[in-house]
């Protein structure tokens, strides 16, 4: 990585990454991918988020489903850990709570493969700074 030298450089990088993410989310391109974020703060990890993440990666690979599984910070739903956010290209992200292996498999089989939502969705209950 070369260093960012100016504010203009920084803005250029921002726009580049933004469009990369947009592509991934909207899936206008053939490389459209399912995206899963696993909430991995200390509390999530203590509730089994690492196992869930490993399971998701292994199972998706095993089934030959192209997906990006990444870690993120605390989503705030301590009562429902482990939590994941699932984005199907072209659709609004959906957050699921209490995602152990069984739930993870149900999500893969139904939501990812068939596009059917399953029980356990956590509605977004906050405003963001852009609203």
């Amino acid at each position: 990585m070369t260093k960012i030298k100016t504010l203009a450089d920084l803005k250029r990088i921002r726009d580049e990454v933004q469009s990369k993410i947009k592509l991934r989310e909207q899936g206008d391109k053939p490389d459209k991918l399912v995206q899963i974020k696993v909430s991995m703060a200390t509390c999530g990890i203590a509730s089994g988020a690492k196992e869930t993440m490993t399971y998701l990666i292994d199972e998706l690979e095993h089934q030959g489903i192209d997906a990006v599984v990444t870690q993120t910070g605390c989503m705030g739903y301590c009562f429902a850990e482990p939590t994941i956010e699932l984005t199907i290209p072209g659709k609004e992200p959906v957050v699921y709570g209490h995602v152990g292996k069984e739930k993870a498999l149900e999500i893969i089989e139904k939501h990812i493969k068939l596009g059917e939502m399953v029980d356990g969705i956590i509605p977004v209950s906050y405003k963001t700074i852009d609203e």
């Binding site: 974020k37 909430s39 703060a41 993120t72 910070g73 605390c74 989503m75 705030g76 939590t83 956010e85 977004v124 209950s125 906050y126 405003k127 963001t128 700074i129």
Partner: peptide, 13 residues
């Protein structure tokens, strides 16, 4: 929606 996330804007994103 009673919450607004400013300090937590990126947490979980």
């Amino acid at each position: 929606k009673k919450q607004i996330r400013i300090a937590l804007r990126n947490c979980g994103f």
